[in-house]
Design a protein around this nucleic acid. Sequence first.
DNA 1: CGCGACGTTGAACTCAGTCAAAGTTAGTGG
DNA 2: CCACTAACTTTGACTGAGTTCAACGTCGCG
Lengths: 243, 243
Amino acid sequence: MAIACVQCPLRNRKIFDPLTESEVRFMQRFKTGELEVEAGAVLMMEGANAPHLYTALEGLGLRYKTLESGERQVINFVMPGDFIGLQAGVMNEMQHSVEATTSMKLCVFNRNALWSLFADHPGRAYDLTWSAAVEEHLLGETLAAIGHLNGIERVARAFIRLYDRGESLGLASRFEMALPYKQQDLADALGLSLVHTNKTLKKLRDAGMADWQRGKLTILDYPGLCEIGRLEVDGALPTRPLL
Amino acid sequence: MAIACVQCPLRNRKIFDPLTESEVRFMQRFKTGELEVEAGAVLMMEGANAPHLYTALEGLGLRYKTLESGERQVINFVMPGDFIGLQAGVMNEMQHSVEATTSMKLCVFNRNALWSLFADHPGRAYDLTWSAAVEEHLLGETLAAIGHLNGIERVARAFIRLYDRGESLGLASRFEMALPYKQQDLADALGLSLVHTNKTLKKLRDAGMADWQRGKLTILDYPGLCEIGRLEVDGALPTRPLL
DNA sequence: CGCGACGTTGAACTCAGTCAAAGTTAGTGG
DNA sequence: CCACTAACTTTGACTGAGTTCAACGTCGCG
């Protein structure tokens, strides 16, 4: 029933570095199963340890921190190919929660196997570190955005980033993408209030640049959004390892 | 002339995990030299590759991104024990710059040796990944702070975080710490304007909570600052590996 | 049909940014 | 040793982007 790694639908996406036969075999051994969860399920809990690590295969999720005040900071959006649980794997506690926004299908790895990955497959360990470095890079980008961009710039940037990621995964095309998040999710990701996010969305809609309604994002003016969001129009994402 | 790893003054700090004899010997081989730089030196350049990786031994620095608009986002403050250049090591390009704020002394590692670390010393590779995960965690914290705290809260939090780090490294005690950064640096780290940062500093000074002048930070009301900055008063930092 | 979750809109308020100018400090060279 | 300069800090006045509060609209579901 579970999909074999050899047939993993993600493997061939151009965004991911190709794996050798032997690497695939190792990942297959590393993989202990598959998990399907409903929308709303909490995959990882801030402060808790986790016996499993995951790679998202299908569906969308959210990483977030909950502040003392009850507010929420969305760290980023989880898409297929994303590795979940590194912190629980190496540190002994997650520093943020991960939640499924839609129903999701995930590859399950045994946490204990992480060590064997380092011991026996340095190449894959290297890839894991790589993906941690990429995460760090993306977080840095987000930090810079939230630190220096105003509302409309943040939203424009977020849309382009989300669309580009979606497109690289085959989840988006012709400037359309299913984006079943709530406005509150975006607001929490961008550090804006819900109300202001809503008004900003309206502005972009009225300006004919982007439309996001009923879970569907439509990019109407890609270059325009890039300019507002201070992004290169040629937003080629770097290829990355798949775990 | 260069300090041997065995005698590394950082090794014994309680914040760092102890290393075995064999690990120290390996690090010694990994280490290719020592670098001393003047204040203001740029250690890593955003977008550039770097032949060397460093661990800070003495002095303070800054990691930052430069935005298209010329503004600067300070990602974090570099203190002794921090590993510099992971991104250049695994990806092939730094995503942020690193600059020495004071004169600094650094341990130099050859980038090519990074691979041998993965191949021959999985334990150390694991530590490297660990430290990447810690970085990610800290960035997430910062993101949440900038996304949800107002000016005075951010400054208070930054002071506590800096002091705690300094204290764990033996750079601070009795609520005093040398902090030779400029107000502009703090402003860029917190996503605030210089003017507003300055006014906020004055507020904290007038309130008798913290004083930061002429490069010296004095924490006058630790619990008070924690409360403002939404931090646990018991801010024990987790131990971490030293590379 | 009615309820709850989510989205939309308007009005009042406020935190923080910008502009502009003056005050301090440290370093340099005469 | 002092004068001059450049970098950094401090302060006030003004402005505006974004928050908060509050109400209303819309959609889907039991």
